[in-house]
């Protein structure tokens, strides 16, 4: 069984039933999860910021970092596993995007990340069927490729499924 650990700005995919795809401590970052039932592939991107226009060089080096570059990059990666290039037939789930308490607009990066991601998904005709976004705690996510099951955890809380 392999563990694919994704850091901030990483994205990855697997169709090996023994694999687990995992990302630790999402704060305001959002994890976008694509499940493709047809090819039994799981993909995830750990997105830090909504918009790559602030640093094009970083976006070229690490497309998973920004919402607008992460989603096309993840779709391209998954197409190598036989998934549709435009995400047709895929199940989308989102989690993370927390905000600190009493945040004002400027500091609501979690919220802005989620919004940017939804807009881009929409342009592909995709939409999330499940989400666990916002609030003020960090989340760790792990997905078993075999079952497509997504487990979330946070210190002080019992684990939950998405």
């Amino acid at each position: 069984m392999g563990q694919i650990i994704l850091g901030v700005g990483d994205y990855g995919a697997s169709n090996s039933p023994g694999d687990v795809v995992k990302t630790f401590a999402l704060g305001s970052c959002v994890s976008v999860i694509f499940l493709d039932p047809k090819s039994r592939t799981v993909g995830m991107a750990h997105i830090a910021l909504p918009d790559s226009s602030i640093n094009k060089a970083k976006a070229a080096e690490k497309p998973g970092y920004f919402a607008d570059t992460a989603i096309p990059a993840l779709l391209t990666k998954m197409s190598k596993f036989g998934c549709d290039k435009r995400g047709k037939g895929m199940i989308v789930k989102l989690c993370g995007g927390a905000n600190v308490m009493d945040t004002n607009d400027t500091f609501q990066i979690g919220k802005r990340n989620a919004l940017a991601i939804k807009k881009i998904l929409w342009s592909y005709g995709m939409g999330a069927i499940a989400e666990d976004l916002g609030k003020n705690f960090s989340r760790t996510v792990s997905i078993s490729v075999a079952a497509g099951q997504i487990t979330l955890s946070s210190p002080g809380k019992p684990n939950w499924q998405l």
Partner: peptide
């Protein structure tokens, strides 16, 4: 926010 807290209080 960047995912570097100290556990439960983050």
């Amino acid at each position: 926010m960047g995912g570097f807290g100290t556990g439960s209080d983050s």
